[in-house]
Design a protein around this nucleic acid. Structure first.
Lengths: 401, 401
DNA sequence: AGCCGCGATGTAAACGATTACAGTCCGATG
DNA sequence: CATCGGACTGTAATCGTTTACATCGCGGCT
């Protein structure tokens, strides 16, 4: 009768054996309509009778239906994602960059596919290739990757924005910081304070920002006839540790420099810690300055004079340009954008501004603009003539800030 | 004869009119084989004659063919991507977390789809839903998201690892820091140095880490019969700015506390800057301690005593667990993992250890373990009895370090 | 000689959505 | 009453892959 048929599992168990993920077909079946109608309701395209619409909505909610991203992008040719290729992620500079990118992307309804390349070439190629069909565009911030690698591993239709790389001809959009003018401005500021022996802590040799800052320093030193010597240029790689090492070495230089310009804040902070360990007073014995104005700079001791860059804006602008490229299907005019910098004078360089960081805790930016207007002045002054042509563009853009 | 037929465009132009992106079919056609064979070659599956293989490889390279990720994941049901849901990305703690995740993921061939939720509920749901069909698993590090939201917006088959959230029952994997023991250990250390009035700077109220650290502090204060007062517990939100505000307030408390325990390093650094501005000497007048041991802690002035957490490891472990879940198709035993902490004594708390950060620049970890072994002791000592049951697990795991 | 097995390849069905196109129904219009 | 048009809905093609299955040829085995 009811029999014992051990082979055949009970239907109820079979039905729930594999919790297969629910698709649009399931919704359609349960709502008694075709998948087309379901799609129309979910995307609010085309006319659907109110009763049908409500029924479909109800079923979709009950079934917890979530559309399948890959399937959707396959047919629509749109992923709503942006790829971000970064070098090693270290310190507050990168978290600020990512924050800026994430904020701007989120606001525009895009997601972020991030990868950091650890320098190896094959790895970069693999990453680039893996983005095909996964992103609508790419932000590349990596000194190690050249245009050829890019072109060889990416469809030519993919919009790309280069961030802080040397401007790669007219083929690609790019956004950079006005490193040259920023560094030049800082050198002029230090010189104006009476410093003539200014040491520099360099960044990684293949890094574009680092090279431009170095160029700004050298041209400033030459233009202002300051002391120039290889000994005053120390190796560095943008890490705090490198800054610490450089600080130790500088403390030991015979006629000690009276100022130290670290080409980023992380290294400047390393320099500060080394000087503290060596018993050198800042700014009493030596002035210290950095570059980037990462948020922590105003909290270190003494608060760091530095070159302000609106880091999150850098990421935000990259997103804006990229989305513009995506919207125009990459048939837009390419542009090279340069973000201006401002000098931020805190107490580490001895140009005491009275209060220290007492205003650091509120929304205010907590820094004092250089009262002598040195940075803005640099654009049209004699120092600017020292720079090469690539600086002209920056000068123009700077005015717009 | 050669005729003028203006209507018909030259074939060469028509062919290149739309630079359609090249697909597997193009490769197949040019190589004179079927798409199946091309696929076999590219994925190295199934037997293919060497001659055919070479020809296909050559054509694919010449055409710069790159497989379409979405199409591939649609059929294979595999994306090789992991979603990461973060709260606001601020400061070095998060860049270290992301670095750990990125490193571990990259090593295993996974990419990262990151989103930071800025707290709004609807936004979180949108993000969650958008991951369907885009990721193989999810790491969630967000105090704002509850299990219900998760279940309502995600297919039940999706592996999830919760990072630094309250342990959500047996349904989900989770990884947390041993906040309780870490905070307790720091309180005991400060007490051992003779401090009886220890102020605390709290984290955000809804943050799990913050609550556990607060619990550790309170139980430590009670167990050691230290001064307890609401006045000594200051509001904070894990930002440097909040730390600065708290520092200002503490400097003004009538019988000034002799020690300040900020529940993360960012706030501790804010406290330091406020005390400097107020002319309070650290550690001479007051001891300061933090939590997390972010890389910059040993570079601030004075170098910060803190509770060390191997932050990148936190991310790495999350990836490991998640990939395990993915590999077992989410049919694995759920686990709650707790990462141990260690006390790091630098000079900000006055337990002078001789050299300051002179070893901070090399690969070495640059800190001194608490010589009294207070942290390890806490697990089995009287203080542990004070904690509730959720601590037991941590104790066990701690031994394994 | 017949058969088996296997290597090499092709055919076509998925995967889960979107959407052009084609129906159907119905009220309005002439 | 025939026709038209619009609202609503369904059918089926499509996106670019992977892969189960079929086919074919060929050499070795019994």
């Amino acid at each position: 009768m009811s029999g014992r048929v051990p082979k055949k599992p009970r239907p109820s168990r079979r039905r729930r054996s594999r919790p297969r993920t629910v698709t649009i077909k399931d919704v359609a079946r349960q709502a008694g309509v075709s998948v087309a109608t379901v799609s129309r309701v979910l995307n609010e395209k085309g006319p659907v009778a109110p009763a049908t619409r409500d029924r479909i909505r109800e079923v979709a909610a009950r079934l917890r239906y979530v559309p399948h991203g890959a399937a959707r992008s396959l047919i629509t040719n749109k992923t709503n994602a942006i790829g971000v290729l970064l070098p090693d992620i270290y310190g507050e500079f990168f978290s600020e960059i990512i924050r800026g990118i994430d904020l701007a992307a989120g606001r525009r309804g895009y997601h972020l596919l991030v990868s950091s390349s650890h320098g190896r070439k094959g790895e970069i190629e693999a990453i680039l290739r893996a983005t095909r069909g996964r992103v609508d565009g790419l932000i590349v911030m990596s000194p190690d990757v050249d245009v050829d690698t890019l072109e060889a591993n990416l469809p030519s239709t993919l919009p790309i924005v280069m961030l802080n790389c040397r401007s790669n001809g007219p083929a690609l959009d790019s956004i950079t910081i006005d490193n040259y003018a920023g560094a030049l401005g800082m050198v002029r500021h230090l010189a104006a304070l009476g410093h003539r022996r200014i040491a520099l802590v360099k960044g990684p040799p293949n890094n574009y920002d680092a090279r431009e800052r170095l160029r700004g320093y050298r041209n400033g030193v030459r233009a202002l006839a300051l002391v120039h010597s290889r000994e005053l240029e120390l190796e560095g790689d943008f890490t705090k540790e490198a800054g610490h090492r450089a600080g130790e070495r500088i403390a030991a230089i015979k006629p000690r420099p009276t100022a130290i310009f670290a080409t980023n804040d992380a290294m400047a902070i390393g320099v500060l810690s080394a000087l503290r360990d060596a018993g050198v007073d800042v700014p009493g014995d030596v002035a210290v300055a950095g570059f980037d104005d990462i948020p922590i700079s105003r909290f270190v001791s003494p608060p760091l004079s530095t070159v302000h860059v609106t880091i999150p804006e850098l990421g935000g602008r990259a997103i804006e340009r990229l989305i513009h490229a995506i919207d125009t299907k990459n048939r837009h005019r390419r542009r090279h954008e340069t973000l201006p910098t401002t000098l931020v004078v805190r107490s580490s360089c001895g140009a005491a501004t009275g209060g220290l960081t007492q205003n650091a805790n509120r929304r205010g930016n907590g820094h004092t603009r250089d009262p002598s207007g040195l940075v803005r002045g640099a654009a049209s002054s004699r120092a600017a003539r020292v720079g090469n042509s690539s600086t002209n563009e920056s000068n123009v853009l700077k005015g717009g800030r």
